[in-house]
Write a protein that binds this DNA or RNA. Structure first.
Lengths: 238, 238
DNA sequence: ATTAAACAGTGATGCAGATCACACAGGCCC
DNA sequence: GGGCCTGTGTGATCTGCATCACTGTTTAAT
């Protein structure tokens, strides 16, 4: 059970675009070494649940590859997706630090690999390596900002169109061209998009038609072509 | 300019109901001492802005007395209130740690006192005292949970009635009697309640009437009498 | 005491989006 | 090929709440 399972957690840093921001990159040699001793790597199939809302926190997951859907549900079965995580993200950190149940469910949307760090080991490491504590504080405050953005979207953006436009914009930031166009591989169903922006599947379907008709985007197979970010930004207005 | 201005930051601990949870209580003598050197105490009148959304972070405020309204607005002027903070709360921490602009506006709702800790001093302290870094991480993860609750409320709770019931419940937790009733001093206008639950003033007005008619609550002067938390919980159902 | 300003109640109206109810397309498995 | 599932497009209807437009009521200001 060596490669690719035995991936050194630090190897991740070499391939991460934002490595300096990442929780466990560029640590002191001692801390890095320690981290490699306590982590364990695993491969997860599509559909695997890393953890489920309400479970006691077992530890954190550092995602190496694959996409993860973070969601939360009400008792009546309504579900919202709060984030689609990908490579480099740290999952379950809040639950571990504050020792409360996981607040979301984390499900693999495609097969992928992750490093697991058990709760106790992480907490000990926190105490022994001040630099790690600071990194974690920074990571948590980034998480907070993400959550805050979500609150703004849900609370301030009035119409589904506005939220949809906002979502498209967030997708296109990474691949944006200088002329404002962008190509995005669309991996979500309409149902899932609906759960992100808090509306119904039917409405999302209509939004796609509407936006296509208005020349805001077009669909080529599974690739979303965004014509002009400017035009989308005008719709958002918040 | 001595008492009450010269309040020792640690004195706060003696009067806080949840002192063990608080950021700057029960620190080591050295850290506590250091904290007292860098903090400065001030009294703020009603309406004073501790900081405004979008400003570069100057530092954090530890609230000693008074209530603070945290809010965020869209460009079109729609405002949502994300939290009413009171004694013991730490404001502006996320912005300082991640070095991004304050994400909310903090306004005194009544006169009160607070300790200000400048950004740089706090960051230095973080490095010198590992215990402080850990405390801050815990505080941030608590903040995150609060934000997460807000997301659930906004995203999952369908109707204004549901959100209103949820709000009443959150108010009544502190003063709840064993029989499920509670007395709450009502300090917010209908307008403000509307900004918390994301609806209009008129709807809040109608909600008050509706809940009174349904015997869920009654109003005696400025005191809200909650009849039965059970009944409210049945409405929430999320 | 008088006026103004902020706050609160309530009806009438309109519409966006949820809900219901289908029809249809593409995979995939025997 | 025929079944079956999952995902998608689109009409028809229904409704809760925003919006508008008032009146009444409380508080603060001079």
């Amino acid at each position: 059970m060596r490669a690719p399972y035995g991936l050194n957690i630090l190897d991740n840093c070499l391939t991460c675009p934002l490595r300096s921001e990442h929780l466990f990159c560029n640590l002191s040699p001692q801390a890095g070494q320690r981290l490699n001793e306590i982590k364990s790597t695993a491969v997860y199939p599509k559909g695997a649940m890393l953890f489920i809302e309400g479970q006691q926190p077992r530890g954190v997951f550092v995602l190496c590859s694959g996409k993860v859907k973070l969601s939360t549900s009400s008792r009546e079965g309504k579900t919202i997706i709060t984030k689609i995580s990908d490579s480099g993200d740290v999952l379950g950190l809040n639950a571990v630090i504050s020792n409360r149940p996981y607040e979301v469910t984390a499900e693999m949307m495609e097969p992928g690999q992750g490093n697991f760090i058990p709760r106790d080991s992480l907490l000990h490491m926190l105490k022994d390596h001040p630099e790690v504590a600071i990194r974690i504080a920074q990571q948590l405050s980034r998480n907070y900002y993400t959550a805050y953005e979500e609150i703004r979207t849900l609370g301030l953006a009035a119409s589904p169109s506005e939220k949809f436009a906002k979502l498209l914009l967030s997708w296109s930031t990474k691949t944006a061209q200088s002329d404002g166009s962008a190509l995005v591989k669309l991996t979500l169903t309409h149902e899932e998009v609906a759960e992100i922006i808090g509306t119904t599947r039917e409405t999302v379907s209509r939004l796609f038609s509407e936006f296509k008709k208005k020349q805001l985007m077009q669909l080529k197979g599974a690739t979303l072509v965004i014509r002009s970010r400017m035009a989308l930004e005008k719709i958002v207005q918040s």
